[in-house]
Nucleic acid binder design. Sequence first.
DNA 1: GCGACAG
DNA 2: ATCTTGTCGC
Length: 222
Amino acid sequence: MRYRASHRWDLSPREAVELQRELAAQVIRTDDFGTVRRVAGVDVGFEDGGRVTRAAAAVLSYPQLQPLEQAVARRPTEFPYIPGLLSFREIPAVLDALNQLKQTPDLLLCDGQGLAHPRRLGIASHLGVITHLPSIGVGKTRLTGRHGTVPQQKGGWTPLTDGDQIIGAVLRTREGVKPLYISLGHRIGLESAIDFVMGCVTRYKLPETTRQAHRLASGPPV
DNA sequence: GCGACAG
DNA sequence: ATCTTGTCGC
């Protein structure tokens, strides 16, 4: 797939925050997509003590979840990890991986938050706006927001809020394990985001898309 | 000033 | 994320 190129990544943390405020205004928070036949999981891992960033994209058919295509990309790590600015550290490599795909995914599932971010532009939203693709944020832990107890049964969830705003959902993807933090990334509503995540879950806590991407990004050298 | 803090 | 050993439970 090919995305709208030309983006500056050599930004200072301050400039990055400024850019987030601009891009956050471009996020579409409602369903805006056709039939989803291909879902892609995106994840990032590090090598050489963090000096190299390895990004992976795994495309699966939907709803069958059969592997269709995958890509891995490496590039020097240039931006430090700063809570709230994760996308500036990981997206450059992710775009390299996505550009290697022959087929464009209909939906992206990213590790981390989407709307559930201090400035409403977590990595899932940032990546969605840049690629123009519908996206969902799937986080294993919380960045911001509050929530009550999460139902124990698989599929149960409780809203993640920030003041009077609902910024995401804390979803039980599997019984007996810690829930996932789901939030809309771009061109999709929260309800649909939750449905697609559950649609990608089989017998594990993490959706298949994420599991495949994680295996490629952090597994033995590819 | 004191905590919180995706991956 | 990554560095790391054993250990609890299905």
